[in-house]
């Protein structure tokens, strides 16, 4: 059973679009699936007083995060009739415009995949010990001005 496997959630750097395409492709052999729901989190170029976000550097409390992701998986599988569930989160530096979170749920009928996907994303935001440090684009420019 998929639920019993220990899953590797963290990916170093951004999640490439090719990886997402391959993940979809892999499910074409599972003929009992009728619906996929995909959430992609992308790093946004938020503007602050002191500059624009050029990238986010992600860190985690690895041992605790593994437990949290495991619980989210188990509880979501118990609650919804899912065929598959995949969760990937970036660590390290992800540039604005790149993907840092990929949640992928599949089910026979759409309601389960859609609800489960949304719930997983909300739970990750709230429960997963992951931190993003914003790296501003004009930080270097500001240093140069100081000298």
């Amino acid at each position: 059973m998929e639920t019993k496997k220990k899953h590797q959630v963290f990916v170093e750097g951004p999640i490439p679009s090719g990886f997402i395409a391959e993940s979809i492709e892999k499910h074409s052999k599972k003929l009992n699936i009728g619906a996929h729901s995909i959430f992609l989190g992308q790093v946004r170029n938020d503007r602050h007083e002191n500059g624009e976000v050029g990238a986010i550097e992600y860190t985690t409390y690895h041992a605790m995060a593994e437990e949290v992701f495991h619980h989210i998986r188990e509880e979501t599988f118990a609650k919804y009739a899912l065929t598959c569930m995949h969760i990937y989160h970036s660590l390290g530096t992800v540039q604005a415009g790149e993907i840092s979170l990929f949640v992928f749920t599949s089910s026979a009928h759409r309601a389960d995949a859609i609800s489960a996907c949304e719930e997983i994303v909300e739970r990750i935001k709230k429960e997963a010990p992951v931190w993003g440090k914003e790296i501003l684009t004009d930080q270097k420019t500001k240093w140069k001005q100081n000298t």
Binding site: Y61, H89, V121
Partner: peptide, 10 residues
């Protein structure tokens, strides 16, 4: 014991 600031993953 871990000191955890507000989470900001995703």
């Amino acid at each position: 014991v871990a000191l955890l600031p507000p989470f900001s993953g995703g």
